[in-house]
Design a protein around this nucleic acid. Structure first.
Lengths: 179, 179
DNA sequence: GTCTATATTCCGATAGAC
DNA sequence: GTCTATCGGAATATAGAC
């Protein structure tokens, strides 16, 4: 019975997130967000005193969701790499939606930028601790970045993600000569 | 003496590109672009009848610059992969600036999106034709994307780019088993 | 060709009724 | 708590002077 409160807040925040994703950062005006959440702009601005406050709340949300994900990744049975790379499980997850939507705020929201950067370095740390070989960890992270970048720019989930994961796993078993 | 004409057009287009990059897609209003180019909004709208026309011209510019780059890459003495990977030569090049600026238009400009997608697949084809193994070509493309995504988000050129290139070259010499 | 002035639309925010 | 009404600012675009 703890979350019966602030239903309007959550509806507004969800509508904001969805609109940011669907419109690729445009058309997420307070009017549109309010309409989507089933309130008016006045009602929205009662819960979030300004657009900035609404954006801050979404960044807070991402921060919390990411912290949970770090903990799951750190304690994943198959290891951090096997947890990190499967993009298919990630795409459209609550963490993904929070990350992408905050990404659209980043250009004029410094805390959003620093949070996204912090998340990247945290993932790299966790993968490096799992894989051992720092270069392979770096390659795995960059491949994940590449897949993610591709998804961001094309708007479509790549179809060969499994092949990439398999490729990294083979490298892990038999790394190329260092000479 | 062929390009003494349309100096104002070029100044406007350059100002538009620079403003898009500097402001990460925001603050590139017609007023600002005109001010930066040393004309007024009226003057700008004489050369480009609408904002859309201005955006179209920038997309056209990228299309031309990219076509030149494809040809250079296709005929590069060291091969397509060696031409593609050195990020240091690419960062801040005319092609880079055109690509990044058009990227900021992409969210509400379909031709910009399709052009960027076409460029990606064209690079992948050229690398694949050079490398032979399609999966390795894909990995090389994704690593390049990853490095680029990193510079976009952190604002700094990665320090281990040479290690990544070396890693890919070793993979090329001795690919991991396909089993 | 380039300018000024203005019309129009949209967004964020405030004031105040209920 | 949620609504309506409205202000102020910014952006695209048009009209017309020079």
């Amino acid at each position: 019975m703890a979350q019966h409160k602030d239903n309007a807040r959550e509806a507004i925040l969800t509508a904001f997130q969805n609109l940011l994703i669907e419109s690729r950062g445009t058309s997420a005006s307070l009017d549109e967000v309010a309409r989507r959440a089933g309130v008016t702009k006045g009602g929205l601005l009662y819960h979030f005193g300004s657009r900035r406050a609404l954006e801050d709340a979404l960044v807070d949300h991402l921060e919390a969701v990411a912290a949970e994900d770090f903990e799951r990744m750190r304690t994943a049975p198959g290891g951090a790499l096997a947890y990190y790379l499967p993009l298919r499980d990630y795409i459209d997850s609550p963490l993904d939606r929070a990350t992408v939507s905050v990404g659209f705020l980043a250009h004029d929201h410094e805390r959003a930028r620093t949070l996204l950067a912090m998340m990247r370095s945290r993932y790299q740390e966790l993968i490096a601790a799992d894989v051992g070989d720092p270069l392979l960890a770096r390659v795995a992270l960059l491949l994940g970045d590449g897949l993610y970048y591709e998804t961001l720019t094309t708007g479509a989930v790549p179809g060969d993600e499994v092949d990439i994961i398999d490729f990294v796993n083979r490298l892990r078993a038999a790394p190329p000569d260092a000479g």
